[in-house]
């Protein structure tokens, strides 16, 4: 499982405009609908919001991984959003979230979905990776950071 196979520069938005959790999720789903194989953006949005109601996916150290299963996507879809200001995403440590990975997968692709989430969780434990992602200036820089990390050049 290589995240770089799923995340190209058009899957990345630096400077999210949303000012709260729901707005950020809407913005990420909108981006996902533009660049991924999404048949029903509203269904995807609802699935992600419903999952979020079961418990926030805001983790520690400024990272959130909103995700859901939905057959409104054709295949595992991942987009990345970055907010310099930070968003209150009801994170575990109570701090603002800056780096967002939205993952949506059809029910038939739970294996790759779980592997992708596990890979992201593994990467965000690396301080340097998190910092470089949050401070990236362009989507291309984000792709480079992900590629370097997956090639074992981080840590």
């Amino acid at each position: 499982m290589r995240l770089a196979d799923y995340i190209t520069s058009d899957h990345i938005k630096i400077g999210l405009e949303g000012r709260n959790k729901d707005e950020v999720i809407e913005e990420l789903v909108e981006l996902c609908s533009e660049v991924c194989d999404v048949s029903d953006p509203d269904a995807v949005l609802q699935a992600v919001l419903n999952r979020e109601r079961d418990g926030s996916t805001g983790l520690e150290k400024g990272v959130a991984i909103p995700h859901a299963k939905s057959d409104a996507v054709g295949t595992l879809s991942i987009v990345v959003g970055i907010s310099r200001e930070g968003i209150d995403f009801e994170a575990q440590d109570g701090k603002p979230s800056h780096l967002f990975f939205l993952l949506v997968a059809p029910t038939s692709e739970s294996g790759p979905h779980v592997q992708a989430i596990a890979k992201i969780v593994k990467l965000i434990k690396i301080d340097n990776f998190r910092e470089q992602m949050i401070n990236a200036q362009t989507p291309e820089d984000v792709v480079k950071v992900i590629n370097s990390a997956e090639n074992g050049e981080e840590e």
């Binding site: 079961d54 418990g55 983790l59 299963k69 294996g111 596990a118």
Partner: peptide, 27 residues
């Protein structure tokens, strides 16, 4: 084990973990 780790990291909630476990079994 991986599902339990994601539950422990609070990326998954319990009901979701069980759901994914069923999916992986079907896979």
């Amino acid at each position: 084990n991986l599902l339990n780790e994601l539950l422990k990291a609070r990326v998954f909630v319990q009901v979701e973990k069980m759901d994914y476990e069923r999916d992986l079994e079907e896979d």
